[in-house]
Design a protein around this nucleic acid. Sequence first.
DNA 1: GCAAAAGTGTTTACAGTACACCCATGG
DNA 2: CCATGGGTGTACTGTAAACACTTTTGC
Lengths: 244, 244
Amino acid sequence: MGVSFLYLQKKSLNKDAKHYFTFALSIDCVVFGFDGKDLKILLIERNEIPYANHWALPGDLLDPKDDLNNSVNIILKNLTGLSNLFFEQVETFGEINRHPQGRVITTSYFTVVNQNKYKVNPASFAAKAKWWKIEKANELKLAFDHNIILNKCFKRLQDSIRTKPIGFELLNQTFSLTEIQTLYEAILKMKLDTRNFRKKILQMNFLKETDKFQSNVSHRPAKLYRFELEKYELLKKEGFSFEI
Amino acid sequence: MGVSFLYLQKKSLNKDAKHYFTFALSIDCVVFGFDGKDLKILLIERNEIPYANHWALPGDLLDPKDDLNNSVNIILKNLTGLSNLFFEQVETFGEINRHPQGRVITTSYFTVVNQNKYKVNPASFAAKAKWWKIEKANELKLAFDHNIILNKCFKRLQDSIRTKPIGFELLNQTFSLTEIQTLYEAILKMKLDTRNFRKKILQMNFLKETDKFQSNVSHRPAKLYRFELEKYELLKKEGFSFEI
DNA sequence: GCAAAAGTGTTTACAGTACACCCATGG
DNA sequence: CCATGGGTGTACTGTAAACACTTTTGC
């Protein structure tokens, strides 16, 4: 197994640095989007080996000069044009043979974006990108261990959506209560009771009714709401805890 | 920033491997113990630079031949003699200057052990090890970013103890209800109501009353219970979810 | 006037909380 | 017989869950 005490001992560390400083690190990111109906994730089609013609999570090697957490935004921007997103670190994968070309450890993140605000334009970036329904993505044989990473990140999203107000990132700035409910149903994969859902989310007091309504719908137009971040921060400071 | 598309392109990866395959990876572990009264963590005293004479979390460099998650047990055994423990991966830290001697990324884990079963014997292992009250450990200036890692892992323990039956690892095989309650109070850092706590944990139906009692105590001896793993697994399969 | 989704309140059941006294043992 | 922690039940309160009809718009 060859575990050493290098970590504790400078002299040995210098001597055997060649042996230990041989890992590459990558970042893989699950980007969740919502089109008003289904939860989607963003995949990129590889055109080089290994895994040529396979779909993969957007990701890249970490430059040894760059900070880990700060690089996610840069990598994602280079691959897809998406920028300035919030990320949650999920898990680090380090199986010996997960990358066929060397010892690459990957740290996974997820983020959520509004599909309408961020239209991915495959032509303008390095790789072909496409939004996939999460079930469809799971039927694909993704590159590397990306099916596993995808599922871990999806589980984490399901947890986080219930305890943090990240869902509003997936919607337009104003939205109807039905839209939030549909979003929660798509992520949690369960039907929710309309009256109870509205009661619960409204009494949290961080949604502000606007004077706008849906337009051009062939039914009663829904009132539109806005998420008040400042209000949420205040409530949190007072000890309130978000839970759906 | 120098982010590349190497990850996607074999030819470049081969060419620039020297640039990217230059990280070292380490594993750091927060070992929680319980002495019947206080929550403790296990620290090791370094006697080499960097951070000579500083206390540090047990950890070591990962050998490039070894799997990440599987190495935690081996590393901890080499440092402390503790073996065959369960670990939960918590977070990976990759700030540029977190290690003064090179680019070392660290993945953190926590585990919980029964302090009575596992007496750490400093003399017989590589480094001097000591159990510290968590508050005292936080007052120390630990090596590297270990204060931060410790606190992240402690928060994760506080979450996990409420949703997974890991607390019983910290106790003897048979234990009194008061002992579990004291443990939860030590970890969650709050007083709990005795009658309500007992009701809640007993009605989960995975604690089995034994015919044993405390002995040599100068008060009414407490009935001793046992955690039934099989029962817990069964209940979980039926959709029951642990929550304290 | 019909189709389609928006919007709205009440009742019921269960789980969380608060709370105080008697019991068994060792010394 | 006293000190110490073990052990127990009930009433109250608040939140989750179940449930059906009216409203507004476009066509």
